[in-house]
Design a protein around this nucleic acid. Sequence first.
DNA 1: TAATATATGTTGTTAAAACAACATTGTTAG
DNA 2: CTAACAATGTTGTTTTAACAACATATATTA
Lengths: 228, 228
Amino acid sequence: MIYFKADYMQKSALFQGLEKEELETVRSSIVPIVKTYEKNEIILRQGDVVKYVGILLDGRVSGLKYHYDGSVQILKFLNPLDTIGLESAFSSFHTSPYMFIADKHCSILCIMYAELFTSQGGSISCKLKLLKNVVNILSDENIRLMYKIDTLSKRTLRDRILTYLSIIREKRGSDRFDIGMTQEQFALYLCVNRSALSSELNKMRKEGLIDFDKSIYTLKLRFGLPKE
Amino acid sequence: MIYFKADYMQKSALFQGLEKEELETVRSSIVPIVKTYEKNEIILRQGDVVKYVGILLDGRVSGLKYHYDGSVQILKFLNPLDTIGLESAFSSFHTSPYMFIADKHCSILCIMYAELFTSQGGSISCKLKLLKNVVNILSDENIRLMYKIDTLSKRTLRDRILTYLSIIREKRGSDRFDIGMTQEQFALYLCVNRSALSSELNKMRKEGLIDFDKSIYTLKLRFGLPKE
DNA sequence: TAATATATGTTGTTAAAACAACATTGTTAG
DNA sequence: CTAACAATGTTGTTTTAACAACATATATTA
């Protein structure tokens, strides 16, 4: 309860744009629960029925996908104020398409999503705002997924790397940025072999295309990707 | 105008659930335009600002993506009553992430999406219904994109093929289904070389894993994908 | 139905990444 | 500070798909 502070919640994509009074009404018609997770603890499993929308208050969460053959794919990272499981809550299956794992100690505010919209309480204009926020979150998610598809559609390792880094550069508006992943995680995200990634990155560094240190990368290419 | 028939429109994902009177109200507060396109005509270009939401009345549309190097990716096919450009209309950029091309002669009902929600007219409950429909459409789009990512995340051609076919089988609930693509289009979708796809498909047929004729495929594997 | 275009199949060669195995560096906790 | 672990770098071998070039089959239409 203590975590449901209006001024903080207003910063989350789910509640942004709501007036303090509206947030109060929402708060009074739901029963928010704060759950905490230790590092590496599983928050949601693939296929789990999702009845709660989560808002990450603190920590970091990875969204992973496990395949039949044991391979793993990294889909996204969540940071404070991001929502968890929204896309599942509104999908026709109501089940989680990926597994969520706590990267470090996390606290998550959980809201039964049914309460959000079926609750008589809140004004209808408040519901409208909430729904529009959901639409925006889903649109953003869509864009993120399309970026990933753009990356994976590239055949060569180098193209995948450059495509991914270009997208991040565009997002951040800077040639130097933190991708927030170790090489190992980066390899999972790109769906490539870890050691192959390492050697390609070093090759590209030698050629002066990029530079990197830990998870901080510098993209030196100026005008799009190289023509073949 | 003639195309805006309530009983037909109610079948579209955007308008489903609306009562006839509600649809009437919507219709009266918007100016729907029907545009027609010849085969191979461009409907939207990448980066175009999207002000209209389209509903495909007749024909078939491909959603493609062109890359800097000239390569093309197939993202989706649209069939009658599918919406066009909805995901762009609600994204923060309001621009189309892909190019839409008419696969054959098409007619499309275009609605300025601003009119849909800013129009004073319609009851607010009608707006709520519309927004919920948008949420559902975006959720479905999300799932489609995740399927594609699942497919592309596979390293080998065979795994990509099997992943894709398994997803379609699940969707259709049958081992035999029409994927609605030529091998050439299938290769674009899978982001692989056309002739490599052809030879892998034939290899798999010889091994009894699948069968296919034109765009109709039979998946003979029963229990998931083969363990390595 | 012949002629053309489009789609699919086949082969050999080349390029690229996976993979395994190990070396090196960096980080963390007792 | 050092042992243990985690992350990154490096090499050689094997697997796989791209690619080019051509053959065959299937549609389309004049």
